[in-house]
């Protein structure tokens, strides 16, 4: 069974290895220069309260166009890898056999359907995880100077925070779990639907919904967030809506993930004092001064940067458990004769 799995999966293995090899070559050629740029930027020895943000910004501005391109390409690749694995490795695994009727050949050798699927699932899932793992390790290593600088100056144009939704999915070990999950999802869809193309569509739809739902609905609550109650910096006020103030966070937890920020009054209630007489007169300066005299504060709810790995482990555990549940579903499904 191992031989057959390998033989049927050979082309994909070669393709994946080629992608890894080309990427490794490109990153190995450009990585040391990027690391050197970081080492000579002074960020490593900067003072957080004095010049870190400036040095980080200077470093990010000095990135070559190739480096910037590679950085975002790498993120895109880590987003794409689980999807590609689910769609092209997972969905056809059972569906293609049923479509081409080769399941009638495969399931009538001296190997039970359960064992046939178990071996295929295990080997291909391990390959998917190894591939994504190597991809993640290489890209995380190469991108680490940019990631570190970004954490020091989150307001820079290209800065992404690795704990925040956009970058989180493309760093650490989470991509490995996503790959395992997407693969199991594809196999399950193919086994239940029996046809490759609809199974691919179903895999894409379900995976997209889950990848959107996870950072917005579930991940923020995996650990109780931290709170910061700080004076509102008037420079952060961006507008007035009825009686409340709109403002960007006055406090940026370095490398942290801001879940919400709300303007509050000194008693801790949502700030409702923006309809001062000065504001009704539409004189912006006086309006601002009148609001400042009320000492509005800001409540910022966030996940600190130090929890990155805790979140990575939680996230990975969740997706690996989901992958195992799906694999169990497939094995249960295939045990009974259903498709002739």
């Amino acid at each position: 069974m191992i031989w057959l799995t390998w033989r049927q999966f050979r082309a994909q293995t070669i393709g994946a290895t080629a992608v890894l090899a080309v990427l490794a070559l490109v990153l190995w050629r450009t990585g040391p220069d990027l690391a050197h740029l970081y080492d000579t930027s002074g960020i490593a020895t900067c003072n957080p309260n004095v010049n870190c943000a400036t040095l980080a910004s200077r470093f990010l501005n000095k990135l070559s166009r190739i480096d910037t391109l590679l950085y975002f390409l790498g993120i895109g690749l880590l987003y794409a890898a689980p999807v590609i694995i689910g769609v092209f490795w997972g969905a056809p695994l059972v569906a293609r056999e049923i479509e081409t009727h080769t399941h009638r050949l495969a399931w009538n050798q001296t190997v039970t359907r359960t064992r046939w699927l178990a071996v295929k699932l295990a080997i291909t899932a391990l390959a998917a995880m190894a591939f994504t793992g190597l991809l993640a390790v290489m890209l995380t290593w190469w991108s680490s100077p940019i990631d570190r600088a970004s954490a020091l100056n989150p307001t820079h144009g290209i800065a992404l925070i690795r704990l925040a939704p956009l970058l989180f999915d493309a760093r650490g070990i989470a991509p490995v779990a996503y790959a395992a999950f997407a693969f199991a999802l594809g196999v399950t869809a193919g086994a239940l639907i029996h046809r490759t193309i609809p199974a691919i569509a179903a895999t894409l739809a379900v995976f997209a919904v889950i990848q959107i739902a996870m950072p917005s609905l579930i991940r923020p609550h995996l650990l109780p967030p931290a709170h910061a109650n700080v004076a509102l910096n008037p420079a952060n006020i961006v507008g007035i809506k009825d009686t409340s103030l709109l403002a960007t966070p006055s406090f940026t937890p370095r490398g942290g993930w801001i879940l919400s920020s709300q303007v509050i009054d000194t008693a801790g209630h949502p700030f409702q004092g923006a309809n001062t007489t000065a504001c009704q007169s539409r004189n912006y300066q006086r309006c601002l001064a009148s609001i400042e005299s009320l000492h509005p504060r800001q409540l910022i709810i966030y996940q600190p940067a130090s929890r990155f790995w805790a979140f990575q482990w939680y996230e990975s555990a969740i997706f690996l458990v989901l992958a195992l549940l799906l694999a169990g579903t497939c094995l249960w499904w295939i045990r009974r004769p259903r498709v002739a």
């Binding site: 049927q8 081409t100 009727h101 080769t102 009638r104 050949l105 009538n108």
Partner: peptide, 12 residues
Amino acid sequence: VGFVAQDTPTYA
């Protein structure tokens, strides 16, 4: 039991 299914499937 040896089985040759209808349309004699093989791996193309």
